[in-house]
Every structure is written in structure tokens, then in C-alpha cells.
Design a protein around this nucleic acid. Structure first.
Lengths: 178, 178
DNA sequence: GTCAAAAAACCGTCCAGGTAGTATAGTGAA
DNA sequence: TTCACTATACTACCTGGACGGTTTTTTGAC
């Protein structure tokens, strides 16, 4: 158990650095220091920087997939299970969106192909929400609006007030099951 | 006239490098070479890497603002002018979205604060679309859905087919004036 | 209109500092 | 013995930016 934790600690450290200090400060030494591990120790787990970023992406993709899937399976809705889960988890869950953002940015910077696990995820979800019992165009728009909030958070573009966000959330959720 | 062009050429070269080779390959030398200028020449126009990225962001912000504003002023709609323009320009215009993406990513990597011109832009637009004659929540959702497409393009997450994109576009545009 | 002087636009090299990755010798726990 | 590291040293390379020059354009006095 200790081994897995250590690896995850390193991944968290990497995310923290990216989100707090930017991608240019994601160095192996800095990551090791942040994780409380020696550089050699880090390289034992992740033999290169690319492997580290790959680890970040794979880890967050797994997490995200699980959250959405378990939310969808627990849902009692007859239609709009998946799209509702997507909106719900992405808006509200303590799921670390900063980790997501760090991972995406790091992958984009280091090697585009490392984004593939996320791409697979989105292909699955798109299929699920198009077969979710509601109008596929509408369902897709709901998904996109959720992604739009995400884009705004990623670049800190236009942080909507909590009330506005709440109003949008409610409207999206209501659309998602009618 | 030749002077301005040279600066813009350098900015375009920088964007090209970011979008084709990633942020880590945006070096002063590479940018100079791509623009057909010496390193010294580049540093004459942009005295540091940060200044270069600042130039990228300011340039694209100006362009984008102009496009949306002229589209809104030319619009004959009674309500939903701004949100319609936003959707229209962001979806369809030959406005270089790759430049936008490169600029955002570069700024995010080099120095968060360089994003401020874009933030100002979004604040203006948000005010405009909330006073656009249609339900502000709905208008904001339309904007967010447009941003969602953008996020998906940025990371190449789930490229919708042209037909689906068209269907979404039409639905958003129709919502934008009802 | 001429022409020197100044300003603007550019070139090419050098260097200090930083970084990924390698190597190696050693430690303690299971 | 193997696993999961620590600690340190070292290499090979790259990059931002400074700097000192050169060429082209503009200016303004005559």
C-alpha cells in the first residue's frame, strides 16, 4: 500500500507545482522536493519527465471515469443519467479540477499524445449521452456548457458569481431530464 | 508600414511554433528563425520572452474584440445581438482560433497575468450579453456552450462531426434570439 | 534638393545558469 | 535477496538575455 501512495504523492506534487507555479517550474528536482522524495526516488517510479506527466494523466482519467460512472449507475433517473452525472460531478464534486487542469496543461506542453486517455474518456461519454433518452443535440449542448465553465476556470476568464453559477447549474440539470 | 508588419510576423511565428511544436519549443531563437529575423532583431522588438508572449495576447485580444464588436454593430437583430455575434464569430469566422489557443497557453505558461487583456474582454462581453434583451441565464449558457466547443478543440478532446456541430450551431443561434 | 547626423531596425556571438538524465554507492525493511 | 528508496556527483545540452556591432530609414538644416 505504501508504494502506491508514494507514487500518488508524487503525482499530486507535480499537479501542485503546475497549478501554483506554472508548467515551466515543473522540474524533476522541484517535484521530488515537493513530494518529499529524492530525485533518485522520483526517477525510480517515473523514469522520465514524460513518464511523470503520463502518470498524471492516467491517474486523473481513472478517477474521473469512476466518479462519473458510479454517479450514473446510482442515478434513479429514467433518462439523462449520464449527462446529469457529467454536469453534477463536473460542477460540484470535490473531485480536484485543479489536478485535471494541471494534467491537461502538462500533457499539452510535454507531448500531445499523452492526452489520449482523456480523449478516450470523452468519446465514451459522448456515446453515452447521445443514447441517454433525451435529444442528443440538447444533451451535447449541456455537456458543452459544462465544459465552457471549465474553460473559464482554466484560464480564470470570467468567474461567474456563485448565484449565477447556481442558476446555470439548475437550468442545465432541469434540461438534462426533460 | 513595414515596421508594424515585422512585429506581427514575429507574433505569428511564435503562435505557429506553440501550436505545432508545443510551448517548450517556443524559444527566442526558434521564433526568430521562423520569422526570418535574427535573434537580436527579435529582441529589438520584444526585449524579453515575456514581452513576446504579452504581444501575442494583446494582439489577439484586439483582433477578437474588433470582430465581435463589428459583428454586433452590423447586426439587425432586436435582441441577442451580442450573444449571436459571439457564437457566430467563434464558430465560423476565419479568425484564427489556433492563434487564440497558442496565446492562451503561452500566457498561462509564462505568466498568468498576461491573460488580463483576455479577462477584460470576457468581462465586457458578459456584461453585454446579460443586457442583450434575452434571459441572461440562457444567454450565458449559450456562451458557455460555445466556450465548450473551444475547450474541446484546444485539447482535441471530442471533435464533433460537422453535421453535429452544425446542428448545435443552429440551435444555439435560434435560442439566441428568442 | 542635398546631405550629414541621428534614430530605428536589425545581426551574430558569448556566457552564466539551469535541467534532464546517468551513474554509483549505500541503507533499511520485508 | 529484493524492493524502495537516499544522497551525491557529474555530463551534456540548451536557453535567455546582454552586448557590441552594422545597415537602413528618417529628419532637419542649408
Amino acid at each position: 500500500m505504501g508504494r502506491v501512495t508514494r507514487k500518488v504523492e508524487i503525482l499530486h506534487a507535480a499537479s501542485k507545482i503546475v497549478s501554483e507555479k506554472g508548467i515551466f517550474n515543473l522540474t524533476l528536482e522541484a517535484t521530488a522536493a515537493e513530494a518529499g522524495v529524492s530525485k533518485g526516488g522520483l526517477l525510480y517510479h517515473f523514469p522520465s519527465k514524460e513518464a511523470l506527466v503520463q502518470g498524471m494523466v492516467e491517474h486523473l482519467a481513472e478517477n474521473y471515469r469512476e466518479k462519473i460512472a458510479s454517479s450514473a449507475h446510482e442515478s434513479k433517473l429514467e433518462k439523462g443519467k449520464w449527462i446529469t452525472s457529467y454536469v453534477d460531478v463536473t460542477f460540484n464534486n470535490p473531485y480536484k479540477k485543479t489536478d485535471m487542469n494541471s494534467g491537461l496543461l502538462a500533457a499539452k506542453a510535454v507531448n500531445e499524445e499523452l492526452l489520449n486517455p482523456i480523449r478516450d474518456l470523452y468519446m465514451e461519454w459522448q456515446l453515452a449521452i447521445e443514447d441517454d433518452g433525451i435529444d442528443p443535440v440538447k444533451a451535447t449542448i449541456i455537456r458543452l456548457a459544462t465544459d465552457g465553465i471549465w474553460l473559464n476556470e482554466l484560464f480564470d476568464l470570467n468567474q461567474l458569481s456563485d448565484e449565477k453559477k447556481e442558476a446555470i447549474y439548475k437550468k442545465l440539470i432541469s434540461w438534462a431530464s426533460e
